[in-house]
Structure formats: structure tokens, C-alpha cells
């Protein structure tokens, strides 16, 4: 019993890091542009396919294709921002949500057309898949993904705190007009923020390809969890996103251990609904909107 709980905790924490990484991208985009990006899951899926194809066509280890997927998605993100979202910045918020929904539909179904709905997976050979600590098994690719997620989050946090560009991004997210008056090119910040958000999704995607199936609709699983995590942690809150990710990862793993069938999925949404009702600004959110 104890082993089961410990095992679930380990699995949950490892998966939670990935959810946190997806959510950080969402939260970065929301923080700067005040847009909730429905297409985040679709961008993650693109990252997965980049790693999948580099693996199956070029024999490249998915971890080595991370720079490729991060950079490609940065540009795809910047293009989406330039051609579509930059024109939607002052639109009503539900229209912004709808336009990202449209982007998601296009990307997902384009992938479906190009690569068929087949589930594909990357099999890494000559690679230790799991090791045991006592009776608890640790999945190595998941551990790598988790560590990478934590390192990336800390890196992003430092980038935003310490660098000039990071400060400009934060300034834009706090007060767009004020930032503009202080000489920050807020349009450029938008491209960078959306590009970075897309890259983060892509990196998350590449990191999970070794242990998660790749398919055109895989993004839907992650986008819904991403929303939950972001709302849990408070929109625009980075540390909150990681903690929210861990909460969802753990509750899902515990639910999986003790609830029959796919009822574990309920855990996520019930937590979501409760948080939405009780604290729509997130568990760590401060003032009311």
C-alpha cells in the first residue's frame, strides 16, 4: 500500500514537471499578451513530431533534436504572432480565445492530413528505462524530462529577473503603455514572448517523445491540463505554474492508483472547478482582477 502511494507520488511528481512546463509557456503568453493560447497543445504536438521525424528519418536521439524543435517553434510562434495575433490584441477576450482555437484547428488537422492519425512512438535502445529506489521504480526518460523542466523553469525565471530583455518582458506584462513610454518596443516583446511560449511547448513535446505516444491530437490532453495548471497557479505566475503542475500530476497519479477506469481524469477537473469557483486568480493569486 505504502509502495503504491510512493510509486504514485514519484510518477505524479515526474509528470507534474511536464505539465508545469506546458503551463509556463501558457502563462508567459498570457502574462505578456493577456491571451489564453488554445493552440499551446498543438504547438507541443509539433515539437513532438519534429523529434519523432528527426529520430525516425535521421536517427537523431530525441534529446538532441530539442534545439531544432525549440528554434523552429520559436519562429512558427513569432509568425503566428505577426500574422494573426498582433491584430487581435485589442479584440474582446473571447474573440482572442476563438482565434487561438482556430489556429489550433488548423495546426492539428494539418498534422492529421500530413501524418495520418496513427499513434507513433520512439523506442530508445541501449538506454536504461527504469531504475529502482527501494521498491519504487523511476522511469528514466520521465526523470530526465522532469529535471529538464525544472532547470528550464529556473532558467526562464532568472532570464526574466536578471536580463534586460527579461525585464522588458516583465515590464510589458505589468503595464503595456508604461513599458512603451519607457522606450520598450512592445511589439517586439510580443513576438519574443509568443515565440518563447511556443518554444517551451516544443521543448516539452520533445522531452516527452521517448515515453509518450506521438499523434496529431495529443495536444488536447496537454492543453486541458495546461489550463487547469495555469488557473491553479494563477495566470501569469511562473512558480505557481510549476506547483500547479505538481499538484495535478500527483492528484492524477494517486487517482490512477485508487480509482477504477479513467475516473482519475476526474480529479484534475474537479480540482479545476473548485479552484475556479473559490479562487479564480489561482491558489497563489493576489488581488482580484
Amino acid at each position: 500500500m505504502l509502495t503504491l502511494i510512493l510509486q504514485s507520488l514519484v510518477d505524479g511528481i515526474l509528470m507534474g514537471g511536464i505539465y508545469g512546463l506546458v503551463a509556463i509557456g501558457l502563462t508567459l503568453i498570457f502574462g505578456v499578451m493577456k491571451i489564453i493560447n488554445f493552440a499551446q497543445g498543438a504547438l507541443l504536438m509539433l515539437g513532438m513530431y519534429i523529434s519523432y521525424w528527426s529520430f525516425s528519418l535521421l536517427g537523431l536521439n530525441p534529446y538532441l533534436s530539442i534545439p531544432l524543435s525549440a528554434i523552429s517553434l520559436f519562429f512558427i510562434g513569432a509568425i503566428i504572432q505577426k500574422t494573426i495575433l498582433s491584430k487581435m490584441l485589442n479584440a474582446p477576450e473571447h474573440n482572442q480565445l476563438l482565434v487561438t482555437l482556430g489556429i489550433m484547428l488548423v495546426i492539428e488537422n494539418l498534422a492529421l492530413i500530413l501524418w495520418s492519425p496513427d499513434f507513433r512512438s520512439v523506442k530508445l535502445e541501449g538506454f536504461i528505462q527504469t531504475f529502482n529506489i527501494g521498491e519504487v521504480g523511476v522511469n528514466v526518460p520521465k526523470l530526465i524530462a522532469f529535471i529538464a523542466a525544472i532547470v528550464l523553469s529556473i532558467g526562464l525565471f532568472l532570464f526574466l529577473k536578471k536580463t534586460m530583455l527579461g525585464k522588458a518582458i516583465r515590464a510589458t506584462s505589468i503595464n503595456r503603455n508604461g513599458a512603451m513610454l519607457s522606450g520598450i518596443n512592445t511589439n517586439r516583446i510580443n513576438y519574443i514572448a509568443f515565440g518563447l511560449g511556443a518554444s517551451l511547448a516544443a521543448i516539452a513535446g520533445s522531452l516527452i517523445t521517448p515515453f509518450f505516444y506521438t499523434s496529431p491530437t495529443v495536444g488536447a490532453t496537454f492543453i486541458l491540463k495546461g489550463f487547469v495548471v495555469v488557473v491553479l497557479g494563477g495566470l501569469g505566475n511562473f512558480i505557481g505554474a510549476i506547483i500547479g503542475g505538481l499538484i495535478i500530476g500527483i492528484s492524477e497519479a494517486l487517482g490512477g492508483a485508487f480509482l477504477p477506469g479513467s475516473l482519475k481524469e476526474l480529479m484534475t477537473y474537479i480540482i479545476f472547478v473548485i479552484v475556479l469557483m473559490a479562487k479564480p486568480n489561482g491558489l497563489f493569486g493576489g488581488k482580484a482582477r
Binding site: 482556430g102 492529421l112 492530413i113
Partner: peptide, 15 residues
């Protein structure tokens, strides 16, 4: 032959 062509069209129209 392409599953999803109609949803892609919907996405384009929506955007």
C-alpha cells in the same frame, strides 16, 4: 482521403 480537411477549413474560416 484526408481526415480533418473539413476541420482545417473551419479553422481557417474562424481565423
Amino acid at each position: 482521403n484526408f481526415v480533418g480537411a473539413n476541420l482545417m477549413a473551419y479553422g481557417v474560416i474562424l481565423i
